[in-house]
Simulated scan of single mutants.
Amino acid sequence: MQLGSQGAAGELKKKVSVMSQPECSICYNTYDNVFKTPKVLECTHTFCLECLSRLMAVSLADQDGNGGSNRLSCPFCRHPTTLTEDGPPALTTSREVLCKLPSHQQQEEPVWLEGEKLCYKSADSGAPESSKAFCICIDIGADKTVDAPIQTQPRTFGLLIILIDIIFIVICHVHTFFSTSSKLNLLQHQLVV
């Protein structure tokens, strides 16, 4: 019986420790040591690497040729942070937040930008002879040329539907008006006669 209560206490402790882990204020995911690595901006606000990379991609797409200076505005205070060519992966990692993670996540893994992808490469932790490297990349891009047709087509179609609905409603009201008006004229004619 005591063993069962210890097991339940251990399970509860695991759940509490997961719930108490720090999380990114943008995506609300808990930090880790790969794509969700806690990165510090110049204003000292901390966000995960993936969110900052996505924010950078959108910011650069909106700036369209700003002379090569990559600046990232903090989502909280709007203070600009200057980025190097390596982008958000080169920002300082918050050791304070990293130390609050489980012990196996307290060592930052190498992550880099490759175009509009955030990439991570690791070797399998098996035997040295059978170890195989694997690479994971996630798309963080904000390519406007790809998004534009997808966004404009439903809007155009939606506007067409709304326009047809409005024309139909107007025609129905006009028909009802003339129909009622002719009935009133007939009724007046019958009352006079």
Rank of each mutant, 00 (worst) to 15 (best):
7 G>L: 08
178 F>M: 08
169 I>F: 11
56 M>N: 05
16 V>S: 01
80 P>G: 00
143 D>T: 05
167 I>E: 05
155 R>A: 11
85 E>Q: 14
24 C>Y: 13
175 H>F: 15
100 K>E: 07
77 C>W: 03
156 T>A: 08
37 T>W: 03
55 L>C: 06
42 E>R: 03
114 E>M: 08
161 I>T: 13
104 H>K: 11
76 F>R: 11
43 C>E: 01
34 V>L: 02
1 M>S: 08
78 R>P: 06
107 Q>R: 05
101 L>E: 04
128 P>I: 05
15 K>Q: 13
75 P>K: 12
22 P>R: 01
57 A>W: 00
151 Q>S: 07
5 S>V: 12
47 F>Q: 07
5 S>R: 09
181 S>Y: 09
111 V>S: 08
76 F>S: 02
48 C>V: 01
133 A>I: 06
140 I>Q: 02
4 G>L: 12
155 R>S: 08
192 V>H: 15
102 P>I: 09
14 K>T: 04
144 K>I: 05
95 R>H: 04
2 Q>C: 05
90 A>Y: 04
12 L>R: 12
37 T>V: 04
193 V>S: 04
123 A>D: 12
154 P>H: 11
116 E>V: 09
182 S>F: 10
97 V>H: 02
145 T>I: 10
127 A>K: 10
28 Y>F: 15
162 I>W: 14
68 G>C: 01
146 V>R: 11
40 V>T: 12
151 Q>I: 03
27 C>P: 09
77 C>V: 11
113 L>C: 07
75 P>D: 15
93 T>W: 00
95 R>L: 10
16 V>P: 00
193 V>D: 07
86 D>S: 15
143 D>A: 04
51 C>H: 07
48 C>P: 07
57 A>E: 08
167 I>H: 07
85 E>C: 05
124 D>A: 05
64 D>H: 03
170 V>T: 13
14 K>P: 03
159 L>E: 10
85 E>Y: 04
33 N>A: 00
189 H>Q: 12
174 V>Q: 09
180 T>G: 06
136 I>G: 01
82 T>Y: 14
168 F>E: 06
87 G>R: 00
113 L>N: 00
22 P>N: 03
25 S>G: 15
165 D>H: 15
158 G>Q: 09
101 L>K: 08
192 V>Q: 13
43 C>Y: 00
154 P>S: 02
164 I>N: 12
115 G>V: 11
